[in-house]
């Protein structure tokens, strides 16, 4: 028959001590997790977040440029191009949301503002490309590619300023 806990005071004490330690550990984890969720962001983590958001945006613009080139060369169908651009608009939306919700230290405020402007320019260029794919724009492929290239270099400039 299995002995009950009451018959083993030493075991019970150990269990209680273990239980106290466990509670302390859980409390520490909760405190640390809560502290890490604080709103203000350190300079290095703000730099990381801005860089990551801008790199996503640059990837979206490069993808859009490739899609426009392929469609212009008749190497892709319009539905595939439309889906491709729609996906990239989603990426830019996420990238924009990531930047907009950042609370950086004062020295990072200007790059963040420039980053948000660059992502806005990129979004405009990709949206224009999607209108063109759907035959709702008078712009030529060359003009769209120029706009996308401009958006990409704007992002690159901010990335260089942030130090990526």
């Amino acid at each position: 028959m299995r002995p009950s806990r009451d018959e083993h005071p030493v075991a019970l004490a150990l269990l209680r001590r273990g239980s106290l330690r466990l509670r302390a550990l859980v409390l520490m984890i909760v405190v640390l997790a809560t502290a890490s969720c604080a709103t203000a962001t350190s300079s290095s983590s703000a730099q990381e977040s801005i860089t990551s958001g801008l790199e996503e945006a640059r990837s979206a613009v490069a993808t859009a440029a490739l899609v426009v080139t392929l469609l212009e060369d008749d190497r892709m169908t319009a539905p595939v191009a439309d889906t491709g651009l729609l996906d990239q608009i989603g990426v830019l939306e996420d990238s924009s949301a990531a930047l907009m919700t950042l609370v950086p230290p004062a020295e990072m405020a200007t790059p963040l503002q420039q980053g948000m402007t660059a992502v806005g320019t990129a979004t405009d260029a990709v949206v224009a490309a999607r209108l063109w794919v759907n035959g709702e724009s008078g712009a030529s492929a060359a003009e769209l590619l120029e706009a996308l290239e401009g958006a990409e270099s704007e992002i690159d400039d901010v990335l260089a300023e942030v130090g990526a």
């Binding site: 993808t63 490739l66 892709m76 595939v80 491709g84 996906d87």
Partner: peptide, 29 residues
């Protein structure tokens, strides 16, 4: 195709871009 242009794959539509570039609409289909 994608790595030299710093394109990070986050959607299925990006995965087929190299195929379209190489083989056009037929290979894409």
């Amino acid at each position: 195709v994608l790595m030299p242009q710093s394109i990070e794959v986050s959607s299925l539509s990006q995965i087929v871009l190299p195929v379209a570039q190489a083989g056009g609409t037929l290979l894409l289909a």
